[in-house]
Structure formats: C-alpha cells, structure tokens
Write a protein that binds this DNA or RNA. Sequence first.
DNA 1: ACCTAAACGAGACGGTACGTCTCGTCTTTCT
DNA 2: AGAAAGACGAGACGTACCGTCTCGTTTAGGT
Lengths: 188, 188, 188, 188
Amino acid sequence: MAEGRRGAARSETARLAILEATARQFAGSGFDHLTMEGIAADAGVGKQTIYRWWPSKAALVAEALIEGMLLPDRFVPADTGDIRRDLADWLDDLFAFVGDPAHDTLVRSLFAVAIEHADVGTRLRENLGTSLVAARMDSAVAAGQIPPDAPRTEIVELLVGGVVFRILNRTPITPDTSGRLVAAVLGA
Amino acid sequence: MAEGRRGAARSETARLAILEATARQFAGSGFDHLTMEGIAADAGVGKQTIYRWWPSKAALVAEALIEGMLLPDRFVPADTGDIRRDLADWLDDLFAFVGDPAHDTLVRSLFAVAIEHADVGTRLRENLGTSLVAARMDSAVAAGQIPPDAPRTEIVELLVGGVVFRILNRTPITPDTSGRLVAAVLGA
Amino acid sequence: MAEGRRGAARSETARLAILEATARQFAGSGFDHLTMEGIAADAGVGKQTIYRWWPSKAALVAEALIEGMLLPDRFVPADTGDIRRDLADWLDDLFAFVGDPAHDTLVRSLFAVAIEHADVGTRLRENLGTSLVAARMDSAVAAGQIPPDAPRTEIVELLVGGVVFRILNRTPITPDTSGRLVAAVLGA
Amino acid sequence: MAEGRRGAARSETARLAILEATARQFAGSGFDHLTMEGIAADAGVGKQTIYRWWPSKAALVAEALIEGMLLPDRFVPADTGDIRRDLADWLDDLFAFVGDPAHDTLVRSLFAVAIEHADVGTRLRENLGTSLVAARMDSAVAAGQIPPDAPRTEIVELLVGGVVFRILNRTPITPDTSGRLVAAVLGA
DNA sequence: ACCTAAACGAGACGGTACGTCTCGTCTTTCT
DNA sequence: AGAAAGACGAGACGTACCGTCTCGTTTAGGT
C-alpha cells in the first residue's frame, strides 16, 4: 500500500467500541455527563486511544451521529404527489421522535451541542433530512404544486426552525401541528 | 412586622455582584467555561453564598437574563401600521444582534442552555419579544392587514424558529433575509 | 454592686449548655470532630455566644474538664498506711479508666490536646491527682515508709509518665502492672 | 516477571517531594495547620497523587517519620560500661531535643499525633531509641551492673514516660534532671 | 526469523473545579 | 446588653475528570 507505514494498524474494533460507548452514554445522560474516562472504561479502551483519534467530545458525538448511532439515519420525506401531505408526514415523523419523552435528554443535548459545534450542526441538519425536503420541494415545483417563485429555501428553513423552536419552547405537539405549520408556509 | 425573621437579611450587594460576574464571564467565554469558583472570585464572594441562593449555573444564567444583563431587555416590534415592515424590522434587529460576531459565544451558549433548561428557555423567548410580536399581529388583524383566520401563533413560531435555525446553521444573513422570511409566512 | 454594668447578665444556662454540649461531642467523637457549629446547635445557642466567652476550642475543653464533665473529678490516692499499696491502687484506678475501650477516644483526645495546650495540660494533671499523690508521699516519709532523701517529685513524675506512655504505646494492662511500676520506683 | 503490572510506575520523585513538604510544613506549623492542599502545592503535585497513596495526614506524618525527615534517625544510647551514665546521657540527648524551643511545635504536634494514631506512635517510640535502651539494659545485666531480676521493661517505660510527662507538663529541664530520674529507677 | 515502530490497555501524573463543611465575623431581631 | 438566628468572605475537604505521559504488550509491515 502506497506509503510504507509500519506498526499496527488502527483497530476498527476499538473505534466502534468507543463510538458505541459514546452513543450509549450520550443517549443515557446527555452531553454534560459524557466523560472521556467513562467512555474509555465503558469501551474497555485506554484514554489515549480516544485522544489519538478524536480531538474533542464534540467530534466523538459528530462521528457517532454519522454512524447512525444516535438518530434514525435520516428522516426521509415521501413523494406521494401531494407536497402538503408529504411535508406534514415528514414533520410528524420529526415531532414524534423529538417529542418522545424517552428521547428528551438525547434530543436536547444533541441540539445544544449542534448550536455550539458547527460540525455537529452540519451533520445533524443532514440527518433531519433538510436536503431531501429541498429536493422534494423542487419536484413539487416541477409538478406544478408550488409556484416556481415560492421561497423554497426559506420554507424549509422555517419548517425546521419550527421544530427547533418547539424543542426550545417545550410546546406540546398536537395531531394538527404539522398541518398548521405547512399551511402557514404554503398558504391555505 | 408580619413574619419575624431573625438573623441577617440577604445581601443585595452580593446578589448583584454575583449576577454581574456571571454575566461577565458568560458573555466572555460561554457557558462551558463558566465556573462557580470563577464567579465567586470575580464577585468577591464566598462560594457558599452562591450555593445558598442558586441551585445551578443555569439558574444563575436565567436570573442574569431576567436582570437584563445578557441581552437587550427586549426586542420590541414597532407599529408603523405596516405589519410586513414591522416584522421585517424586528427580524433585522434580531439578526443584527445574533449575527454580530462579537456576540457569537454569548448567543450560542445562551441558546444551548435554553434548549437544556426550561427556565432559561422561557426567559429567553420572552426576551426575544415573541409575546410582543404576537400582540402586534393581533393589531394587524384589527387593521385588516392580515385575515383573521391566519395562523398567527404558527407564524411567530416559524419566524423565531427561522432565527434559531440560522444560528444553528450558521447561514450568513443578507439584507433581504428578513423580507424573504416574512414573505414566506405572509405570502407575497 | 461595685462597677455599674448595664444590660443583661451572662446566661448561666447557656454557659452550662455549651459546656455540656462540648463534653458530649468531645467524649463521643474526639477533639478533631469537635466543631463550634456543632456545639452551638447541640446546645441550642448562637455561635456568637460561644465566641463571646471562650477564645478557642481548647478553652472550652479546659473548662469542661474543670467542671468535671470529662473525667472523674479526681483520682484520689487512699491512705491505708501502706504507701506501696496506696500508690498501686491509685495507678489501678487510673489504668482502669484509661484502659477502658469506652473511654479510648476521650482519653486519647484529651492527652493530645493537653500536650498542645498548656491550660488543658495543667488542668488534666490536676485531675489525675498528682498533687494528692505528692502529699501522700510526704505523709509516707513522715511515717518512715520512705527515706526522706527519696526523689519524691521524680517518682510521681515517672509514675504518671508511665501511664501516659502506656496510652501512647497501647500496651495492654495486666493486673500486676501497677505493682511492678511501684516496685520499680520504690525498690522491692 | 511474576505479576504483570501495567501502566506507569509510581513516581519516587513525587513520593519524596510529598514527604518533604509534609515534614517542612509539619515542623513549621504543626499538625493542625497541615493541609493537604498546602502539601500538594508545596510539593508541586496534584492532590490526587497524595490521596492515591496515603489515606490520611497521619499516614503522611508516620512515613515522614520513617524516612527520618522529622526526627534524628534514632536516639542511640552509648555503651561506656557505666549504665547509669549511659542512660543519663541518652536522656540528656532526648531532653536537649524536646526541650529546645525551636522544636516545640514539632515535638508537641508529634506526640499529640502519636497518641491518637497507633502507627505514628509505634514509629515514634522506635525513633526515641526505646528498643536500643532495652538492649543496653540487657548488656548491663550481663556486666553485673543491674541485678537480673530488675524490672527492666518497666524502667525503660518509666524513663520514656518521664520524658513525655515533662513535655506534657512543660517542666523546665535542669542539668541534673536526667541523673535524678535514673537514680529514681535504679536506686542511689 | 528477526527488527522496528505504531497502536493498544492500563494507569500515574499535575491540574482545575466540583459541592460541602466549618471557620470566625457581622447583622438583624427579640428579650 | 445579651442572646438566637443566620448571612457572609474565606478556604480546606475529598472526589471526579481533564489531557498528557509513561509503562509493558500486541500486532504487523520491512528486512
């Protein structure tokens, strides 16, 4: 292999054990109670092995996110031909997840970290399916369901923002929440 | 005098010194680098005096917020008679503040804390002026600028959410951002 | 009453409650775990009332000792006419007290404090009955049981020293210990 | 090699720095003003490094004593053939040390700790040379200077006790003190 | 088959901050 | 004025983690 490295290769076993321990502890007790020593002990790994490959706790979380260990891999909008319904369904999925009390610690910690660490934020946005929703909007334009000059970027932005605001605000979710939000941005 | 308390009364001097130290350190280095010992030293106060009255760092931040030591007391929407313009101006104010690199640490830390601690969240929402905007929307309905059946709650929610999303997402703000967001929720 | 003092007189109730609390805590947990706050709480007294009248914990202990709240008021040597027997009996009393496991904390703390604080030391020596033993020695000289040139001061000193050394050394006491010590200083 | 230890070995440098700091502070201000934080700072060491290896301040003092950092390594009785003189000289050494005002804090604290902590007591007794004196007494018996049935153990006990009592009692030492004590236990 | 070198588990190290406890002082209210 | 109550500035306690630095052990190319 190209450049002649000597010595043992990076242990994939250790890498996964570390990320799994990270995910476990993060989901259980949140970012604040995440400790390098706890992860190392949980993963059965030396602390140095963590510091060798990751610069910070945020980096660990970001990678665990990428590996799909913290969130469903993606929230994917369907394409039934009815853009309103598809958007509302996607929002429902989102609200169901973030509104589940079992995920409360995880979700709050995750968004808090995302706000402070750009890499986690980028990754999280991706996991929420924003880019897929944007694509779905494009196809709705092509199908003539939305006027071409509709501010699509802003609409996606507002909808995801609405989700974040509900988390921030602890507003209880009702069955018609998604519909009302979609109506607010697409008109009645 | 009603209930006969004995012993020295709580020191208002100490209380303010502590909150000011909290605000100073928070604005300077964010929530993560906020330490009880640092605040105590900065305020010239014993640690116990802090623990006697506040249960956590988050409580300190919440109270500093209430005292108006962290944010402008309120972002207040104007009432020029033109609801679109007033909303856009209010958003511009908000974006100007949260987009200012000098406030980056403060803003990110504040929203991160708000997501994890309900009391900070409630207070922060108030400081952003959400309830004033809601009232402004009501008056716009009275003035016939918005149809009475417009989903006003959702609109406010989406707009603030949009701001939060921009923070999360680090999207650069352009001069027309506010107008575009308002247009997206109120129609063109 | 001579010099015209004004205001309330010192409360004897409080004084005794404080000394009793001191004795209780001292006997229970030793000097190290004696705290001003604990004494005040136990005595149902404000801390200032203690500080107003005593300069230190050692002073409290010394006074509790004087009040006879820590040790039997005095270890008194009998006068049966047989100086050897009287000394041995007195030593037996002493050993019985200091060797009792129930008094271990009390005794060790007391001697430790006595070594560091002259006032406690003086008072403790008095409580052990040293001056009475010296007097008993004098009468033994008068009775012709001890030669007049015997180093009486040194003998008392050595005997009490022997007791202290046994405490220091944790040597178990046997029934003949006292007799052997007396024999060592008075000859067989 | 036998039991496969892993991880870094204990740092002898740190160990000695800690004991030296302990000895320094102890000799300077006594046991009461000995603080773990002070020792750690003085030794340039983290507090945990102390707690990792020693359970208490007393244990630190005991080990500093063993290392000969607090007292002359041993008070050794000479053997000139004259047991009376040798004992008196040894006592003189002892009195010279414990009577020196420069050693007052050290000596009092040391004996106070010794009374409360068995391990310090054992070690202190050894440092005073008790076992060497006992051996010297044996050789005096062999040389016919002391009758074989003399209560040697008790004599050593009483002599050391006499020293402790003088400390407790703050009796000033005169040049003939040692001689008088020896005479009291060995006869004229 | 050796040799080197990197990664690994373990864990000691110098530090910082935690939240609690006690100190001795000061202030307030009551007696 | 004395006393009970209790807030205050100070600072040590013992613990938990931080990020770095040895240790010996294991693994895997070079030679």
